[in-house]
């Protein structure tokens, strides 16, 4: 495996991204040392490459990517994996608000807890949160699935039109147009499969609650 290393200690985000994009074609893996929680790191990478941040990233880490497998060995700021259209963004620690905002495809995984509004306006794809997720998780969701292993805050799936939110822990309250539905056998298999792929250990899948839209056209064209 061809590995390229970048020391970001004294580099601007523009310089780091430029180096990542130059190396993405030639190398199989890129390791970024000292990311120092800078913003926009690995923004818009569309190559099929492994990217590893050896530390925490700031806002919009791994945003608008299509293809790379990004691992962040630390925490992430707001909007990690924003608008992902393919590939993976895995955060080993915690993340801020809006994790997986607006994704179309691919998977965003945060191993610990996240802030609020996880998966807002997402159209498809998968978001897995190992810990808790804050208020308005899944707001304006238009598709895809969110799996939360911990608790979730107020107004889950506010104004959801399509998609599904699975929650293992406590649900503080549901948002408008959201309802809890019985988990089917197929749902359980789906959740189990996706969680095992990312090495989450869950003893009892039946603990999960499934949140779906009440109506697919809650605002117009009844």
């Amino acid at each position: 495996m061809e590995v390229f290393e970048i020391d970001a200690e004294k580099l601007t985000p523009r310089e780091v991204n430029s180096q990542i994009k130059s190396a993405a074609d030639e190398y199989d893996k890129i390791i970024i040392r000292n990311p120092n929680a800078n913003h926009y790191l690995a923004a818009g990478v569309t190559e099929d490459v492994e990217i590893e941040f050896d530390g925490s990233v700031g806002y919009f880490g791994g945003c608008m990517c299509d293809g790379p497998k990004i691992t962040i060995n630390g925490n992430a700021g707001w909007f990690v994996g924003d608008n992902l259209t393919g590939g993976e963004v895995i955060v080993e620690g915690t993340a801020g608000d809006g994790a997986g905002q607006g994704i179309y495809d691919g998977t965003v995984v945060v191993k610990e807890s996240v802030g609020s509004r996880t998966g807002e306006i997402m159209k498809n794809g998968t978001i897995i949160i190992g810990g808790n997720s804050g208020f308005m998780t899944g707001i304006f969701m238009m598709g895809g699935r969110i799996i939360i292993l911990g608790d979730v805050g107020d107004d889950v799936a506010e104004s959801i039109i399509r998609g599904v939110v699975y929650v293992r822990g406590k649900i503080k309250s549901l948002g408008n147009n959201a309802k809890i539905e019985e988990m089917t056998f197929e749902d359980s298999l789906e959740v189990e499969e996706i969680l095992s792929k990312y090495e989450f250990e869950v003893d009892d899948i039946s603990q999960f609650k499934k949140i779906v839209p009440e109506s697919t056209r809650p605002f117009y064209g009844h």
């Binding site: 523009r14 430029s18 818009g44 806002y59 919009f60 608008m64």
Partner: peptide, 11 residues
């Protein structure tokens, strides 16, 4: 931040 984000994406 949004302006900066889009700049980074479009190099």
């Amino acid at each position: 931040m949004k302006i900066s984000q889009l700049r980074e994406i479009t190099d």
